[in-house]
Each structure stands twice: as structure tokens, then as C-alpha cells.
Amino acid sequence: MQRILQPGEIEALDNTSFPRVRLPQVASLFAERAARLRQLAVDNPIADYLLFVAKIVDAQHQAQASLVLDTPDAALMQRAQQHSMPLLPAAEHLDPAWHQVLEAMIETLGASNALPEPLQPLLQELAALGVEERNDIAIKLLQKEVAARHVGMAPFIMAAVQVVLAKRASSLDARDVPYTDPASICPVCAGEPVASVLRIGGQAAGHRYLHCGSCCTEWHMVRVKCSHCESTKGIRYQGIEGAGDGLVAETCDECSSYRKLSNQEKDPLAEPLADDLASLTLDLLMSETRFRRASANPLLYVAFAEEQDDDSDELIDPAA
């Protein structure tokens, strides 16, 4: 009797097939990201901010080294695989270990005086928050609900959550990660891609991957396809004149959105999240067009912070 092969089984028959999913390598992920941020800071208009974020990423690297997580619920993962759903949606499976990471990061940043003096009270405020309040803020951030009074805290909270999610994703077997619908969300944590990257090296060479802003998993999506609405119509690329084509904004006429695309063939050191963060000038130019960012950079909220009343519950759109 003949049997219909499933997508994963078809790929397994071809030893030359490229990886559909690239899970994060947490031992080097944050160290490499911090180094890239420092490289991109040279002669950059937002150099001070990039160097500030590099220190946050340094703290992420230190925190991940001692982080030990419980084994994920096998039954939940099996159900997700059966129904082509993300394995561990972040907002629904917020691991308590993220508090441990946040506290370790606060200690590291405080001890090294990494933050400018005006931001030191922010660390104290974060440290004083109760578990329930922290969880509430983290879940709202994952659900794209950002209260104006939490804008300053957002990068630190998302950085701590990101460490746990990336560590969790790194422990998975790529063969267990399901195909999901829509393909524009992370098949591991249901997060949104912060950007995409054309990879070089090995079997991934020449293929485009979406990079999750939450768990840092990457999953393949064919080129010239909108990473937001999945349309293949009206896809165009816009960049800064004279800056080369190592990083461009991929725009979609169908949904009027854009995400940045880094090309490692043009810049082998390109790192999706860091390169997206460092190219704020491109975002400013895109703001003059009809296209809007499809999703935010999880470490960029504070760049747009303004003085707000402490009691304000006004919600802002982090992708605006």
C-alpha cells in the first residue's frame, strides 16, 4: 500500500534540502548580537542608544549561561503539532523563570553602572515590581498592548522574556516544529518576525528566513512574498540612496506594510534584530510613505519614550 508523505518526511529524503527552521544558538546569540550592535554604532546617528542596548544584550548573555528550564509539556506540544499551531505561544506559556532572568539582568546592569544616571531609578522601579504586575506587563507587551507609562520598562522586560523564550526554543528538535498557518508567525512561540535575512553558509545559503523578535527562531519563507499578509503581488524594495542594498525595506502594496530585509551576501555579519535597530533612519524615511512597520523591534520602545503622567494608561502602537 502506498502512503502519502508529509512535508517533513519529503525533506528528509533529500540530503541536500535546506533547513526549514533555524533554532537559536543561545550560547553565542547574544554575544554576537552585542558585538554587531557595537559595530553598527560607529558613525551612527543613534550610536549612544545602540551602545546602551548592547549593554542590555551583554546582560542577556550573562543571564542565559546559568538558566535552567523545565522540560516543556509534551502533551501540549503534541497537540500543537497535530493542529499545525505554534508549539509554545509565549503569552500563554510565560515561564516564571523570566523573573530570575530579569533580576539577574538588573543586578548586572546596576553593578556595572551600564545605564545612564537618569535611568537608574528605572532599574529600582523594575526591581520593586511584584510578580503579578511584572507578568501583566510582559503579557501585554507580547500581545502588542503597550501602556505609555511602561514604555521605559518595555525593553528590559522584553529582553528578559526573550532570553527564556530563546533558551526554550534552542532545546527543541527542529523536526518537531510544525508548519503553521499563517506562515507569518513564529512556529515556536507565535511571535512576529522583527525582520528577515538572506542567509549565507551551508544548506541555508541563498534562502530567506524570518527572524522572530521574541524567541529568535528563524523559519523559511520564499523571497518576494510579504512576510505580513503573504501576498506575492506588489512586493518592492526600498533603501537609502548610497547605502547599498545590504539592508532594504520590503514593502507590500496589498497590505501597505513593510519589514526590513538584511542580506548576508552583501554584509556577512548582518544580524536581523541588531541591523533593524540600527537602521532607524530608514524607518524615518518610510514614515513619509504610506507603508507602516508590520511589527516592532522589542528593544526599541524606549527610543520613542516621552514624558508621560505616571498614572497614564494610554496605549501606544509600538509598530507605529
Rank of each mutant, 00 (worst) to 15 (best):
V164A: 02
V164S: 02
L165T: 15
A166S: 15
K167M: 15
A169P: 08
A169W: 05
A169H: 10
S170T: 14
L172I: 05
D173R: 14
A174M: 09
D176T: 03
V177I: 12
P178L: 12
P178C: 08
Y179H: 14
Y179F: 12
Y179M: 06
T180Q: 09
P182W: 10
A183E: 15
A183G: 13
A183C: 09
A183M: 10
S184M: 07
I185V: 15
I185G: 01
C186Q: 06
C186E: 02
P187M: 06
P187I: 01
G191F: 01
P193L: 00
P193H: 08
V194T: 04
V197K: 03
L198K: 10
I200N: 01
G202N: 02
G202E: 04
G202R: 06
A204S: 13
A205S: 15
A205N: 15
A205Q: 14
G206V: 10
H207K: 15
H207Y: 14
H207Q: 12
H207W: 10
H207C: 10
R208S: 04
R208C: 04
Y209N: 00
Y209K: 01
Y209L: 02
H211K: 11
H211Q: 13
C212P: 12
G213S: 10
G213K: 06
C215M: 06
C215W: 06
T217Q: 10
E218G: 00
W219F: 09
H220F: 14
M221Y: 08
V222P: 11
V224T: 10
V224E: 07
V224N: 05
C226P: 00
H228N: 13
H228Q: 06
C229A: 14
E230D: 13
S231D: 07
K233Q: 15
G234M: 05
R236V: 03
R236Y: 01
G239V: 10
G239C: 05
G239S: 09
I240R: 08
E241N: 14
E241R: 12
E241H: 12
G244M: 08
G246I: 07
G246Q: 12
L247S: 02
L247K: 05
V248A: 04
A249N: 05
E250M: 04
E250F: 00
E250V: 01
T251G: 09
T251M: 05
T251E: 09
C252G: 00
C252T: 06
D253V: 02
D253K: 01
E254F: 00
C255L: 09
Y258M: 13
Y258I: 05
R259S: 09
K260F: 00
K260V: 00
L261A: 07
L261C: 00
S262V: 04
S262D: 09
S262W: 03
N263C: 07
Q264L: 13
E265L: 11
D267L: 08
D267W: 03
D267P: 00
P268H: 14
L269C: 04
L269H: 06
E271L: 01
L273F: 04
